[in-house]
């Protein structure tokens, strides 16, 4: 087991390097460079000033030299400084991570709390009205454009009813509140984002758990359990659900990178200071160090997520063994 994990971790190294080379290359192939947003079509800035600025950022050298310098810095765990505001890229990421994690964990919690019961109950009440109604319900959520729903709910709860703030994460006077006030303030700001990500994210997990539950309850050992005279709740929760939820573990492992990823459109709508906006804005302004930092961290997390999913499998299902 330990040997297997080590082997997998060593395999990560060439994969991560490959991913960074490709990201770096693609980034440099796209037209434009970081200093353009500052200097293009700004009649106050002469051509000489443009070239001088590009040279100061080392952008006048060929891409492979720039890549080599980047990887050299990375070996000391330095992701470099953002071209936009001169601050360390890693600091910019760490600054937004808490907000993104907070939102994503809350909405994942909501999804788990709602989607699993929906899925399990839909399976044991297969083809009933409840099953069909839930199918419609989760697919409405799945196909709903998030930004549109967000705007409508903002108008309803924020503007018309005045119950919730429209956007942002904190009130203007947050710093001056006491602890209770702060908690309430955060909760009010998070209510809509969590509700909406939860609602639009229900479909996947509830459908997965429904279909795997359907498989499981047809199995002989479930019949046996019923035959033994166990109550339905014990059969479903202890015998069926434990087996049915195996694939869910995989999905959770694979969702690790999206936990820190954050959604650009969503964060923009809610003026939410998260990772999605950081990544998107870095791409639009060709902020190479930040793009590379976000990309590398996402790649590592995806690989770790895969490994984690595989490892939790052995824990959840004793039949599976890795060598």
């Amino acid at each position: 087991m330990l040997g297997y994990t080590l082997k997998r971790l060593i395999h990560f190294i060439p994969v991560v390097i490959g991913i960074t080379v490709i990201t770096f290359l693609v980034m440099h192939l796209s037209p434009g460079k970081p200093t353009d947003a500052v200097t293009d079509m700004n009649a106050k800035i002469t051509q000489e000033a443009k070239l001088r600025l590009a040279a100061l950022y080392g952008l006048d050298r060929p891409w492979y030299v720039q890549y080599f310098n980047w990887i050299k810095r990375l070996s000391a765990l330095d992701f470099g400084n953002s071209f936009k505001d001169g601050r360390p890229a890693i600091k910019k990421i760490l600054e937004r991570l808490p907000a993104t994690l907070l939102l994503n964990f809350l909405s994942l919690g909501l999804i788990l709390a709602v989607a699993l019961p929906i899925g399990i109950y839909s399976a044991i009440r297969h083809r009933t009205f409840f099953d069909k109604a839930m199918t419609v319900f989760v697919f409405i959520g799945f196909s709903m454009p998030t930004f549109w729903l967000a705007l409508l709910l903002m108008i309803l709860f924020g503007l018309k009813m005045g119950l919730l703030p429209i956007s942002g994460l904190h009130s203007l006077n947050y710093a001056e509140m006491n602890l209770l006030g702060k908690t309430i303030d955060l909760a009010r700001h998070l209510a809509l984002p969590v509700l909406i990500t939860g609602f639009t994210g229900l479909a996947g997990l509830s459908r997965y758990s429904r279909s795997s539950m359907l498989e499981v309850i047809k199995q002989d050992y479930i019949k046996t359990a019923y035959a033994k005279g166990l109550p339905e709740s014990a059969v479903i929760l202890k015998h069926a659900a434990r087996n049915a939820l195996l694939p869910v573990v995989t999905i959770l492992g694979l969702s690790l990178p999206s936990m820190i990823g954050g959604g650009f459109i969503f964060e923009t709508i809610f003026a939410y200071p998260g990772m999605g906006r950081l990544g998107y804005e870095a791409i639009m302004s060709r902020d190479y160090p930040v793009i590379m930092a976000v990309g590398t961290i996402a790649a590592v997390l995806t690989l770790l997520g895969n490994l984690l999913a595989d490892l939790t499998y052995t824990w959840a299902d004793p039949r599976i063994r890795y060598k």
Binding site: L151, I155, G162, I166, S167, G168, I269, A271
Partner: peptide
């Protein structure tokens, strides 16, 4: 003086209607 960052214009307009 508060300078709020609201990256979406439609939302900014909602905040305006809300007088925030």
């Amino acid at each position: 003086y508060y300078y709020r960052i609201i990256p979406d214009q439609a939302v900014q307009f909602l905040e305006l209607r809300n007088q925030s």
